[in-house]
Design a protein around this nucleic acid. Structure first.
Lengths: 222, 222
DNA sequence: ATTGTAATCAAACAGCCGTTTATAAACGGC
DNA sequence: GCCGTTTATAAACGGCTGTTTGATTACAAT
């Protein structure tokens, strides 16, 4: 140890430094979104000089891109999608449970991602297309396949996808609109038991809705 | 030089002025949200001095609150909720059609509101609680009542509300997540015919899901 | 005609923003 | 020891932010 720990010794560890920046950026961006999060706040929180951010990531936007991708990589590692079950109905139930747990628990598991996704949804950046292609599309295709199995192939592609989107809707809504749902007096489940109950209700509605083809009972006129 | 009618004669009409400010603020806030929208941009777009905004609305946030409430008032005027039908199933179908049309057509009818609501969902301000209470809650209660009628009162309050939220989910999802849904290859309907088809599908799933009480068929263990 | 008050404005204020620059320290290779 | 390179920093840059100020205008009441 030639350089005995000075009080303000320069720490020379680019990787640890970059990681600290990315973590701090995740928290800051998650709190306020891309535009409102400031690099100074990030640098403060990461105990790093402001210039380091541009030095390592080129720009604020470069840092954001890094944060978004890193967050997804971490999340997928700790919350893998379900392996498809043989029984279609069971597969559907498990998919719904997975999706629900994903959207309702991901906040505590990884508080950054949920909000980042929400921001992407409102002001899509180039990263969203990549995200959909790499992460969301495979999982959604999985669901479409299950829907096809449950309905014995009686639905055409648009109808299958529409139904699948409806199922996704019932899962993500409770995360997406929790601010409104909570204010409407309904407690969005945050524990396993509540999520199971919600999964039951959604699975029930999805299964019944899929079981028989649409009876084409459009009302004539008002 | 008493400067009689100068080219930039002062226009003395506070009401028209305030309205111009609110309109401009709506467009600006809708484009970029509250924090990113600047009062200078608004003042420029409203052909008004910057100071006028604080003079009339106290602060940027005061102006935002005014915009949000005004937008809702206007929208409700031109898109009234359905009068409850005698037949519960018909009432449900009409409610879903109303809700779908509301979320899918409101952008062209009033492009400001959708984005404002989205921003509120992300970073709720004090205005959201008021909004829920005055606008959303009555409409939602309407739906809960319909759900109760369809199920012949066999569901308790939490179950009724949960089902109602699921139905709302299927309607709003196609607006909320349209960026992702579009990128998944599904065309979110924007015309009347597509909305009708979607309303059919949602109504079908909702009705079948509600018709019989949950069979309590929770799977034992994995 | 004068006064009082509300409305409007240009300009200034204080502060934060992302980025750049010049400088300095720590390192590996010679 | 000297070198070029990488890493880290403080300070400055130019620009934008919401808000305030103080002067000026218009109009209604006196």
């Amino acid at each position: 140890m030639r350089k005995a720990l000075l009080s303000t010794a320069r720490e020379r560890d680019p990787d640890a430094r970059k990681e600290r920046i990315v973590n701090a950026a995740g928290e800051v961006f998650a709190k306020t979104g891309f535009a409102e999060g400031s690099v100074r706040e990030i640098s403060r929180q990461a105990h790093v000089n402001v210039a380091s951010i541009n030095y390592y990531f080129g720009s604020k936007e470069g840092l954001y891109r890094e944060v978004l991708l890193t967050a997804h990589r971490q999340l997928l590692d700790q919350e893998p999608p379900p392996s498809p079950a043989a029984d279609p109905e069971l597969a559907l139930r498990e998919w719904i449970e997975f999706c629900l747990r994903f959207v309702l628990l991901k906040r505590s598991a990884h508080p950054v991602l949920g909000r980042l996704m929400a921001h992407e949804m409102r002001q899509p950046t180039a990263a969203l297309a990549e995200l959909v292609k790499l992460v969301i599309k495979p999982i959604f295709s999985n669901l479409v396949g299950i829907v096809n199995a449950v309905t014995n192939g009686t639905l055409d592609k648009p109808a299958r996808e529409m139904s699948a989107h409806q199922i996704v809707a019932m899962c993500v809504h409770f995360d997406h609109s929790r601010e409104v749902i909570g204010r409407l007096g309904f407690a969005v489940p945050e524990a396993e038991v509540g999520i199971q109950r919600l999964a039951d209700s959604i699975t029930n509605m999805a299964l019944r809705g899929l079981k028989l083809p649409t009876p084409k009972k459009t009302r004539s006129t008002k």
